[in-house]
Design a protein around this nucleic acid. Sequence first.
DNA 1: ACCTGAACACCGTTCAAGT
DNA 2: ACCTGAACACCGTTCAAGT
Lengths: 233, 233
Amino acid sequence: MTTTGPADPSVQPRVPLSRERVLRAAVDLADESGIESVTMRTLGQRLGVEAMSLYNHVSGKEDLLDRMVDLVVSEINDATGEIAGDWTTAMRRRILAAREVLLRHRWAPNVLESRTNDSAPLMRYYESLIGLFRAGGFSNDLTHHALHALGTRALGYTHEPFDDAQELPDPKVIAQQLAGEYPNIAALLEGVSHDPDSTLGWCDDQFEFEFAVDILLDGLERLRDRELATRSS
Amino acid sequence: MTTTGPADPSVQPRVPLSRERVLRAAVDLADESGIESVTMRTLGQRLGVEAMSLYNHVSGKEDLLDRMVDLVVSEINDATGEIAGDWTTAMRRRILAAREVLLRHRWAPNVLESRTNDSAPLMRYYESLIGLFRAGGFSNDLTHHALHALGTRALGYTHEPFDDAQELPDPKVIAQQLAGEYPNIAALLEGVSHDPDSTLGWCDDQFEFEFAVDILLDGLERLRDRELATRSS
DNA sequence: ACCTGAACACCGTTCAAGT
DNA sequence: ACCTGAACACCGTTCAAGT
């Protein structure tokens, strides 16, 4: 068995705390146990240190959260920076690549939205998206509207009001329970039993996300074409 | 001056606490001072009672938040229930009416998304939306995808990653500061100075919201028409 | 049946003290 | 320069006690 005496350099307490290590540990902790488990005390514990030591590397909880978001958005930039090509396919691929990153950090969207300070990595991401729109022939105005229309989908995620209602049991059973009070919902749920190709009854998040992105990108492209046509006339 | 003796029925402590009063007070408090100010202690204080008394009318903080959301969604149902007509205009008007309600309760979207229990008023709202789609000739599948595509916009709101960056000072000044690091963002911001009709530089939330809703509704209608065409062929 | 006071287990954070 | 222990001001919540 290996000795873990104070001279052993592989032993935990030897590696010194740093801002970098604190932030990485916070992201890992949030990935594993959820953002609500990221408290100064548990984070310190994970790093083998008292909570108060963290304040030497981070100015407080808000700063910690700001920098955690920065790390995640930097990951998005790394994953999407190289993606180029004609604007619709490039935009689509970037958005889906961003989505993959966020699926690894499910706490990130909510934290991102709670931030009030702007983030340099986020600026860089939008810088690159705007470049794509402009190269695709979009006017300033249409680019602006397009960013708003995509909203958080530009970053690869979306909020849905029924986020947690997705682990449904057999939709047919539920449909019968709801038939009295909610006939339309019940009929919708029953749709799945009559049509074997239906995607109803379970929700394929990836499909639904792409479905919505495609509607938006198609619509935006149509508006750009119209814009180009009126401009040249 | 009026006497406020113990026999005066108009004096505050006389009106007894009730579940209804607790919930109304909580919504009012959140509207006025933000959701973070809704603590059991401050809510009790507002009602002239100790925090612990609230537990006689509400099973806890989570229950309180559930019911606060229910109140707001009920308001949406009241505002939208009567709106009928051909599906695009009816859907559009309902969504915009829901938006007006949520603009009066800005804390509601975030709380709604943090809920894990499903809400009867929310079910009723979706029941009515689904009815609109079905009456408009949408298949079960397309109705399902449509609800996902609309996402929270079906309820009249949307999350944008730059929510707080909207009280910008002069966009031209910002553009110059950003020109070095973010040339595309800067160019976008400068667009406003070259085009007097541009909507850039400030963000008209209502315009942007309707812009996105219209893209989605147009796209959905197009898909429905295609669906109807293939079905009848 | 409803309300209260004291207490508990958690937060983030400050500060004086250690090395 | 970095880490610690004790303390403070907040949370939500429990519980025994009052009326």
